[in-house]
Simulated scan of single mutants.
Amino acid sequence: MNTIVDTNYNFPNQKSVYKGKVREVYSINDELLVMIATDRLSAFDVVMPRGIPFKGQILNQIATKMMKATEDLVPNWLIATPDPNVAVGHLCSPFKVEMVIRGYLSGHAAREYKTGKRMLCGVDMPEGMKENDKFPEPIITPSTKADNGEHDEDISREEILSKGIVSEEDYVILEEYTRKLFQRGSEIATERGLILVDTKYEFGKTKEGEIVLIDEIHTPDSSRYFYAEGYEERQQKGESQKQLSKEFVRQWLISNGFQGKEGQQIPEMTDEYIHSVSERYIELYENITGIPFEKGDVTNIEQRIEKNVLAYL
């Protein structure tokens, strides 16, 4: 099971390297970014000890397809995809918030709701909802963009503005773009027999001052999907929804006593489990894109990426 979990390249005119939980970003000449999606798996803001075969390729290819499918609505950073795991785009200054938008009471929102909270990030959640019910209107629940190893924190629009994290002028645009992208993402999901439950978007500013979409979009790492077929029946019966997202990893970890808290041990990830996670990611790719997944050559992933990036640069 060949995977890429770490890179150490030295590209021409390389200025710096940033290593996130999953992606590694190389700055070229302070103009371009080479973003490599690794096979690392992160949950509860903790990177798991083993990589997932083809995960980086899947994330990169879904994200780049979705950027192309939304570029008429919202400008984005993407220029080219010279390798299955690589996206090249404009260097941007990222905003220090993640724009989370939720159409349904699921995941983190549902966990908060169960504790009795009826407000999330300064936004009211209606009384009388069941887990996975649809909100009357999608709600925006931002989080702070944590540095590596730290937890993202919920934050309200008011706090973002009062702390000067984002100017009001820019924040209005971030909200507008977030709603437009979620609407388009929901339409694409519906065409594929899926429901886009919730997702997050990240934005940055180009050197010219234009606000653009960066990072990933509508991938299983940044989004939660339900199967549309049987959704209503499962809700009526109080059953769990059939979903395609990283939530199945979180649930497996929770059931094995791990939620990223101090002193907790990451459960053993067997070859069988790793393979099952890879299969779930492939399943999502094929469902959300509507095309069969073509596995990249993994004989020597590091060498393949280097060769393709150098040929592009």
Rank of each mutant, 00 (worst) to 15 (best):
R40E: 07
P49K: 01
K55F: 01
A43P: 08
G89L: 11
I36H: 02
T115N: 06
K130H: 11
P75G: 09
A80C: 06
R40D: 08
S27Q: 13
M119H: 04
A87M: 11
T38Y: 00
E24C: 13
K65P: 04
Q57C: 03
D45K: 02
M119A: 10
L105P: 05
P75D: 12
I58G: 06
H108V: 14
H90K: 14
P142W: 15
G149M: 00
V34Q: 05
D39F: 01
R23M: 11
L105I: 06
P126M: 11
I79N: 13
K65V: 10
P94K: 03
I58Q: 08
N29G: 15
N76C: 12
Y26F: 13
G107K: 00
R40L: 06
P136I: 11
M119W: 09
K68I: 09
I62H: 07
C92E: 04
A109I: 14
V123R: 12
Y26V: 04
H151G: 04
P75A: 06
T115G: 00
E98W: 06
N148S: 12
N29M: 13
C92P: 00
T115C: 04
V123Q: 15
D133G: 09
S27V: 15
P136F: 12
E112K: 08
V47D: 03
V100G: 10
I139A: 14
A69V: 05
N148T: 04
A80R: 05
R40N: 06
K96Y: 04
N29H: 09
M125H: 08
I58R: 06
G89T: 06
K145G: 09
A109E: 10
V86P: 02
D147H: 02
Y26L: 08
G56W: 08
K65F: 14
M48A: 01
T38W: 01
K96A: 13
L105A: 07
R111V: 14
M66R: 10
A110L: 08
A146Q: 02
I52G: 01
Y113I: 04
S42F: 03
N76W: 09
G128V: 06
V97M: 11
K134L: 14
K96R: 13
P49C: 02
P138G: 08
E153F: 12
N132H: 14
R111S: 15
A80Y: 00
P53H: 01
D30N: 14
M35I: 14
R23K: 08
M48R: 01
V46E: 12
D30V: 01
V97I: 15
E112F: 11
I62Y: 03
A87I: 05
H151V: 07
D152G: 10
L78G: 10
F54P: 00
A87W: 02
N76L: 10
E137G: 02
R111Y: 07
D152H: 09
K55E: 00
G51E: 04
D30P: 02
T70A: 09
M48C: 03
Y113F: 08
M125P: 08
T64H: 06
M119L: 07
D133R: 03
T115I: 05
M35G: 05
F54V: 00
I36W: 04
N60W: 05
T70R: 07
Q61M: 15
D72R: 11
R111W: 12
G122M: 07
P136V: 12
M125G: 10
P82M: 07
A87L: 09
V25N: 14
P136Q: 11
